[in-house]
Design a protein around this nucleic acid. Sequence first.
DNA 1: TTATGAGGGAAAGGGG
DNA 2: CCCCCTTTCCCTCATA
Length: 271
Amino acid sequence: MHKILIHGSLENDINQDFQDAIDVIQRHSQIRHCDNENKYYENLESQQSSVRHAISYYQFTPHFEPPGPMFDWNESSSWSHIVPDVSLGPLCSAEPSAFYSNLPQRHGKGRKKLRLYEYLHEALHDDNMGDSIQWTDRGSGIFHFISKNKEKLAECWGQRKGNRKTMTYQKMARALRNYSRTGEIVKVRRKLTYQFNPAILQRLSSLSGYSSGPSSRDMALHQQGSSEHVYYSSPLPDCHYWYGQYSYQAEYDLATVLTMHEEPKIGVSAQ
DNA sequence: TTATGAGGGAAAGGGG
DNA sequence: CCCCCTTTCCCTCATA
């Protein structure tokens, strides 16, 4: 875990983050064998309602379908190429970056409005947003915001939507919290860290063509995680696995989620 | 103690 | 008008 080859300004953030991740993993590798359930129930007391909602939602929706039809932009969009290192200046421009500027009009047929989780997935593959949002573990859809620049991403989101007032991280995070009820994204117990629903992630990935062609940014992150190979060995969990393991999530912290891939699955998803 | 992040109620906004 | 998905505001709580 010594050498991390990251270019430019990301280095500090990533190093710091990676260090934190290791930290957490080490700290929790000692307790995860016996403490997962305890942690869950412990926290359930404080957030029971929303978590239960999420759980029951999945339980009664074995084949999870995201609410509503998805956007219909196809993978021949500009997603297949990555702008290497284009600076956006202080913030993103009023117009969406060149990277995904063609997306909005691709929503013509079905859902018209871009959803926040879609935007975040875009940003995750946008080099220009690398200082604001990054994959923590792409394989399991875990990502985090960079504290220092998270407001930039929020502002871009707000501009994209054409909101009247400036979007802030706080407000964006409120919207993110709404997802914990419907399940598109859940909170991982680590600062600024969230996780896509695997079904959503899969769809976003296939639509964006990113499952096959990682950007340079992804490669860098891949390298970051390579010293802990379990990061990227994660198969796409099925929905049962998701709600059984992750969506309680909320109560599992990053280390638990990540290390879970090497643990035998707990028999929660039996149904 | 302060700063920062997190959680969520409530109501308004705005598109479909 | 209703519903969905936020957006906006605001308050409380947790923790580093």
